[in-house]
Design a protein around this nucleic acid. Structure first.
Length: 247
DNA sequence: CACCAGGCCGTGC
DNA sequence: GCACGGCATGGT
């Protein structure tokens, strides 16, 4: 059994909800409460967290099959512990990845928390939920820009306006879901695939950001995402983690 | 001062 | 269909 890499799962770019404390534990405001996690044993008996951490999926087996595919994937997999794909809230994930375009993980996390403090509500002293669509509907473009979201302000407003669309995605095929998400301004193929993986458990997504484009050009020049089937999303996450730590 | 960050939009061809 | 410049902000 490979050890869980909770830090990579929670802080490695698929969620911006989590903060690591000095003692190595993690906290986030999810499901109208402050969730504190040290190991996944803390999550197994909680129905919301069982689903959030996708505990019903065999990540050990998936990891072994990914590693067996080729030497690059083996190196990527072995450079990290076990990585999971989270099952996050649709709206929160959509706004998070709209924030992510042409941005870096540290600043995305800061914007996420500023949106929570400004438009969410306090669930414990000093701990704020991410705003619901109706809460964020009170934001206008100028106040969003004042928070620091920059040119993404009108994209956030469009996503709030079309938030009901997010409840229809589960019934669509992958390609139709990609198209539907891209009717929201500021969502292109990369952001759409991140939303489908990290909020809708669509494991065939393969986001190509600047890091993954480098991986594909350098190590898989004649391949496309279907090469990684049926582990496109998880393979991508291991390769993303690997190339970033390699620098 | 540059250049970059989990990209996308609008325009032009 | 593809190429290109512009875009807010903060870090290196």
């Amino acid at each position: 059994m490979i050890e869980e890499n909770l830090r990579e799962t929670l802080l490695g770019g698929q969620s911006f909800s989590w903060t690591e404390d000095e003692d190595g534990s993690f906290w986030a405001v999810l499901d109208e409460r402050v969730v504190r996690i040290r190991t996944l044993e803390d999550a197994a008996s909680d129905p919301f967290l069982y689903d959030y951490f996708d505990l019903g999926y065999d990540y050990q087996k998936a990891r072994e099959e990914i590693a067996a595919k080729d030497s690059i994937l083996r190196e990527a997999v072995e450079s990290s512990g076990l990585i999971r794909l989270l099952h996050q809230d649709h709206f929160l994930t959509t706004i998070s990845f709209i924030l992510s375009q042409n941005n870096n993980i540290k600043r995305i996390t800061g914007l996420y928390h500023r949106l929570s403090e400004r438009y969410g509500h306090e669930v414990e002293p000093g701990k704020y939920s991410f705003p619901s669509p109706s809460e964020l509907a009170s934001a206008d473009e100028d106040s969003l820009r004042a928070l620091g979201v920059g040119f993404r302000a009108p994209f956030i407003i469009d996503a709030v306006r079309k938030a009901a669309l997010l409840d229809t995605i589960d019934s669509l095929s992958f390609d139709d879901a990609m198209d539907a998400l891209q009717t929201i301004k500021g969502i292109g193929p990369k952001v759409a695939s991140c939303i489908l993986i990290f909020s809708y458990q669509r494991r065939e997504g393969f986001p190509l950001d600047v890091w993954m484009k480098k991986v594909m050009k350098e190590y898989y020049p004649d391949k496309d995402p279907s090469y990684f089937h049926p582990y496109e999303a998880l393979s991508q996450q291991y390769l993303f983690s690997w190339i970033r730590q390699k620098g």
